[in-house]
Amino acid sequence: MPVEVFATDEHRLGLKPILRSVWAPVGERPIALGHHRFKWLYVTAFVGPSTGETVWYLSNGVSKPFFEKLLHAFAQEVGAGPAKRVVLLLDNAGFHTRPNLTVPDGLRLVYLPPYSPELQPAETLWTLVDEPIVNRLMPSLDDLHDIVDARCRWLTGQREAIRTRTTFAWWPKNYAPS
């Protein structure tokens, strides 16, 4: 029975701009427009570091019932079930854990130690997702959603770039019996 290993994480984006350093002429301070509004868009990524396969979901919130639905949608998307097992690495966020979390057949959850984001391969995807919105003022959550949706769709085709970014030296290889 084939076994694949994936990692998942969430990223919260809002109408508050993501600021990064930029070049500016000597003696001038660069201007970054911003309006601190607290409306959020959540990006959830399921990534297979060995292959670069990524499944993206956008939402306006997170909760245990919603995460349970995401797990079922993800399991269906990658074909997890009696004929294929998927091991999923994730953090210990309250909505990721039992009790009252139904895990689909064929999916096995493995939790990272507390406070260890450096071990999470999916964490490395957020700079790629943020790229088109860095230092930009987003007028509305719909505009942010459209830009991030287009970016995630584009990143889905960038398997080699995602594979090289997310495959850590200790990451296990997928297993297919001979």
Results as ranks from 00 to 15, higher is better:
174 N>E: 15
82 P>H: 10
168 F>A: 10
145 H>R: 15
161 A>R: 15
165 R>I: 04
137 L>W: 11
101 L>D: 00
162 I>M: 02
165 R>Q: 10
154 W>L: 06
158 Q>M: 12
105 D>R: 13
103 V>Q: 01
127 T>P: 05
148 V>S: 02
81 G>C: 05
139 P>S: 15
75 A>H: 05
121 P>M: 03
104 P>I: 08
100 N>W: 01
117 P>I: 10
128 L>E: 08
98 R>Q: 02
172 P>E: 09
90 L>H: 12
168 F>T: 07
132 P>L: 04
94 G>W: 00
174 N>Y: 11
135 N>S: 13
113 P>Q: 10
81 G>W: 02
144 L>G: 03
132 P>K: 06
129 V>N: 06
153 R>C: 06
171 W>E: 09
113 P>M: 02
101 L>I: 04
96 H>Q: 05
142 D>F: 08
138 M>E: 05
90 L>R: 05
160 E>D: 11
135 N>Q: 11
87 V>C: 04
146 D>T: 13
123 E>F: 10
149 D>C: 03
167 T>W: 14
106 G>P: 02
146 D>W: 14
163 R>W: 05
82 P>F: 02
171 W>P: 03
109 L>K: 05
132 P>Q: 13
102 T>C: 05
163 R>E: 05
117 P>M: 12
131 E>F: 12
137 L>G: 15
96 H>K: 01
